[in-house]
Simulated scan of single mutants.
Amino acid sequence: MEAGTDTETPVIEFRGIGLTYPGPPPVAALRPCDLTVKRGDFVAVVGPSGSGKSTFLNIAGLLDAPTSGTYLLDGIDTGKLRDADRTALRGLRIGFVFQSFHLLPQRTALENVILALVYDGTPRRERADRARRALEQVGLGHRVDSLPTRLSGGERQRVAIARALVTRPSLLLCDEPTGNLDTVNADSVLALLTQLHKDGMTVLVITHDPLVAARAENMVTIRDGVLSLSESAPHEVLG
């Protein structure tokens, strides 16, 4: 799985990508679409509930295979990969951040981040140092030994972001990353994502929140399974 990770190779390239669930009747969850996300982009994918955002996330994150089209991730044609290779590519190239943190409560912040390195081939002797650096990157170097139950919601999401970053992915794929946070913690997490983007990370956020979408440089709208680039203000898109 050689990758084109130079700056000219898009991180995500959809060519006629679509997903239709078999019927009867067949349901077009995502209609065939084209999309390019360049290295270093910050993109928000917005739309009302039931619009197809989750389907988009699952395809972009290599969790579901499309039923039509070609998906290139870092220049790699994902449709030509065996299941095991797709899983390996997902683990190496995509860092996931979910609404519900998914941290192990009995493990420290450091241990939660280290878990992301267990299956990616990182030598055991390097894991703790890399995890510690990732926590420092998100401003939690002083909380490495804390259990999630002793952290605020914003801190827990920062641990989750550190876990996503520690594998050095090409793409940070965030699904409603502030959905479980109050306003103060949400602003803190959004500021972190903005800084990561400024530092060169490619960030793609799926959201229904116009305040989250407003942080992105580019916006994609999904309505009734139809994806389109949007020039509207976030509140106009989301309705």
Rank of each mutant, 00 (worst) to 15 (best):
A29F: 02
A29E: 12
T78N: 08
L73Q: 09
Q195C: 04
C33L: 01
E236Y: 03
L57F: 14
N180P: 11
K38D: 13
G75R: 13
T87C: 11
D83T: 08
A88I: 05
N58T: 08
V97Y: 05
G200I: 10
L190Y: 15
V46A: 11
L147W: 13
D182F: 01
T7S: 15
D83R: 06
S54K: 01
D85K: 10
L140M: 00
R31F: 14
R82N: 14
D129Q: 06
D145N: 00
L172F: 06
D224A: 12
D187S: 12
N180W: 10
P169W: 14
E136C: 00
T67N: 05
L229F: 08
D77I: 08
D145T: 00
A186N: 11
M1N: 04
D77L: 12
T55I: 01
L104C: 09
L35W: 07
H197P: 04
R31K: 15
R133T: 09
D6N: 01
K80Y: 11
D145P: 00
G40N: 02
E8M: 01
F98G: 07
H235C: 06
L117D: 02
D74G: 07
P48M: 14
P123H: 13
R133F: 05
D209P: 05
K38L: 06
S230E: 08
L19K: 12
D224V: 04
V43W: 04
G47P: 02
L193G: 10
T202Y: 10
G79D: 15
G200A: 08
G225C: 04
P48C: 11
T149V: 12
C33H: 07
V205P: 01
G50K: 08
M219F: 02
L171G: 08
Y71C: 01
Y71T: 03
D85L: 13
V184S: 10
G50M: 09
E13M: 00
L151S: 01
N58L: 10
R107S: 13
G47H: 09
D85S: 12
L135Y: 00
V46T: 14
D209G: 10
K80M: 15
T36A: 00
A134M: 03
F96W: 05
R132E: 14
H197V: 09
E136K: 00
E8L: 00
G18T: 12
L57M: 15
E111V: 00
H197L: 11
Q99H: 06
V113W: 06
I222A: 07
P169K: 12
Q195N: 08
T194E: 13
H235E: 15
L104N: 03
F98M: 07
D120Q: 07
G75M: 15
H142R: 03
Q157M: 09
L173M: 10
G75N: 14
Y119A: 13
I59K: 06
